[in-house]
């Protein structure tokens, strides 16, 4: 899948050490624990140190495609042929004998042996947003605490805060959104803190304002940020301000992100990769 391009690999120098050279696509493939994803309950998922260590070592990553408002399971993975609830479309056989999926997905049917479909999933809350909460945060809300979303949990458990690449990326092709706008605007990192929130990349999949203003030297940039941080943290501590804590945590991610700016420069991607 990867079109490896030596020249492109040289572009990114990150913090300056050669281990951190990353090509954008390699990064998307390899360095990222991404997206929102779901397993039964995340609270205990990484509590076994051995599992966390092993996962970290293997460099496992996770991509979740969350289709807010997708076709129902009857038109996708679970057509229930021949039943009243089955819907108007037929079922087709797949590369695994005995498993059928909707006729609308003939190409997926050919790679069924590479997919794991869970058909038994149901949630106790039957309302959309509560269901989304359970699936993305592992459990029902427990006010006044906000559970972190899976991507934030993965970032916190397996990532490194000083990492020069984002550990949790939300690729949102439709930032303006639909009725799920409030979900997307929610507090994703929850009690872990804003530093584990996603880096959002909008319709163009690029990150705006990631480059320093040209007329500002790097020294001035770092100096003024140090002063800003001192003043802003002081306010946070003096007032015990939650709003300021989240605000300051967001700024803590700026340095790492700016160092990975070339990763998000689509112009630097090989043409063949872009066209795919």
């Amino acid at each position: 899948m990867v079109q490896h391009n030596e020249k492109q690999d040289q572009v990114y120098r990150g913090c300056g050490s050669p281990e951190h050279r990353v090509h954008r696509r390699l990064f998307l493939q390899g360095a990222m624990a991404s997206g929102i994803a779901s397993v039964a309950s995340f609270n205990g998922l990484f509590s076994i140190p051995a599992l966390a260590e092993e996962t970290k070592k293997q460099g496992k990553k996770c991509i979740l495609l969350w289709l807010c408002g997708a076709p129902s399971q009857f038109e996708m993975w679970d057509p229930k042929p021949g039943t009243i609830s089955g819907g108007p479309f037929g079922a087709i056989p797949t590369s695994i004998p005995g498993i059928q999926i909707s006729q609308l997905m003939p190409r997926c049917a050919t790679i069924m042996d590479k997919l794991a479909v869970v058909r038994s999933m149901s949630t106790e809350p039957n309302e959309h947003f509560q269901g989304i909460d359970v699936l993305t945060r592992g459990d029902k809300p427990r006010p006044p605490f906000t559970r972190p979303i899976l991507g934030s949990v993965v970032a916190q458990q397996l990532g490194q805060l000083d990492s020069p690449v984002p550990q949790f990326v939300l690729l949102d092709p439709c930032p303006e959104g639909n009725e799920f706008k409030s979900f997307k605007a929610g507090n994703w990192a929850g009690w872990l803190g804003a530093e584990y929130g996603p880096v959002r990349s909008g319709g163009e999949y690029s990150i705006p304002d990631i480059l320093r203003p040209e007329s500002l030297s790097n020294v001035d940039h770092e100096d003024r940020e140090a002063l800003r941080k001192f003043l802003s943290r002081k306010f946070e501590n003096d007032r015990r301000s939650e709003a300021a804590a989240g605000y300051n945590a967001a700024f803590d991610r700026v340095k790492g992100l700016m160092s990975c700016a070339p990763l998000f420069d689509l112009e630097k991607l090989p043409r063949a990769d872009r066209e795919r």
Binding site: A194, G197, R200, R212, A243, A250, V254, L257, M258
Partner: peptide
Amino acid sequence: PDVLPEMIVTDVGDALFLTNNPKMH
């Protein structure tokens, strides 16, 4: 864009804007 959000969440993009946006500069 938020007006009266349910809770205050600062997006990393806000921090990037205030740091690097050319108009801010």
